[in-house]
């Protein structure tokens, strides 16, 4: 299978804090790759670098074989990024927000309409889409943002903690949306998460990151077998520790 994302030896520093100390991994086509680790481990920084928002201080990143920070606009259409705790424009309605995103990604009016139709369906917000997003609950905002990220049919979806802070019902809906999208489109996704249940449910391969380094990598079953654990949570605690978790 084709390699979609190749990260090798990436380093990044913020002032005195060394956020990434040589992170390496790769993501294959049609795969959901999960980056798992405690707070401050470097997950968000890694995803921002893969999305091309910031540049690494050292190492190399290739997305579709290109440097993401210097990617042309046409290639940027192939990926979408959902930041952790991403907000919405509070004075736009949900529908207006979807229309705005579609207007940026679509090449024609028909394509934009199709994207919005898909976004409406993915969000599952129904009539609430006609309300201003400032009045949405956290779960509704997350579903809207996720719908906007997936309705553009990216070849690579970069999702930073897509279910963080959501109640069970919303979290299940979001996970299902991500998994169904990747399975049906053969796109790839990089998902960061704290939730081991979520990771076992949706991820094809997992990388555990701690202190700015990848400490373990493999499929969920490989990791469980290797560490003699009955679930990924045990693997996580063994490798990262309860304190950090």
């Amino acid at each position: 299978m084709r390699v979609v994302v190749e990260v090798s030896g990436v380093r990044k520093r913020f002032g005195r804090v060394e956020a990434l100390r040589g992170v390496s991994f790769s993501v294959l086509e049609g795969e959901i790759f999960c980056l798992v680790g405690p707070n401050g481990a470097g997950k968000t920084t890694t995803l921002r670098i893969v999305a091309g928002l910031i540049r690494p201080d050292g190492g190399a990143v290739r997305v579709f074989g290109l440097d993401p920070s210097g990617m042309g606009l046409e290639d940027r259409r192939r990926l979408s990024y959902l930041p952790e705790d991403a907000g919405v424009y509070r004075n736009l309605t949900g529908l207006e927000y979807l229309e705005f995103v579609a207007s940026v990604y679509a090449r024609s009016r028909e394509e934009a309409l199709e994207m919005v139709r898909r976004g409406v369906e993915l969000s599952g917000l129904g009539e609430d889409l006609r309300r201003r997003a400032g009045g949405y609950s956290k779960g509704m905002k997350r579903r809207l943002a996720l719908a906007a990220a997936l309705m553009v049919e990216p070849e690579l979806a970069i999702l930073d903690e897509p279910t963080a802070g959501l109640d069970v019902a919303h979290a299940v809906a979001v996970r299902r949306t991500v998994r169904d999208y990747v399975r049906s489109s053969r796109a790839s996704a990089i998902v960061s998460s704290h939730n081991m249940l979520e990771v076992e449910y949706i991820c094809d391969s997992v990388a555990l990151i701690s202190g700015g380094r990848i400490v373990e990598e493999g499929t969920p079953s490989e990791l469980k077998d290797k560490h003699g654990a009955s679930n990924l949570e045990e693997v996580y605690v063994k490798l990262v520790g309860v304190e950090a978790a």
Partner: peptide, 15 residues
């Protein structure tokens, strides 16, 4: 920046 929409905006195919 406060609403964390800036990252979405910057990741979009706009210059």
């Amino acid at each position: 920046r406060e609403a964390r929409t800036v990252e979405i905006l910057l990741s979009m195919p706009v210059s």
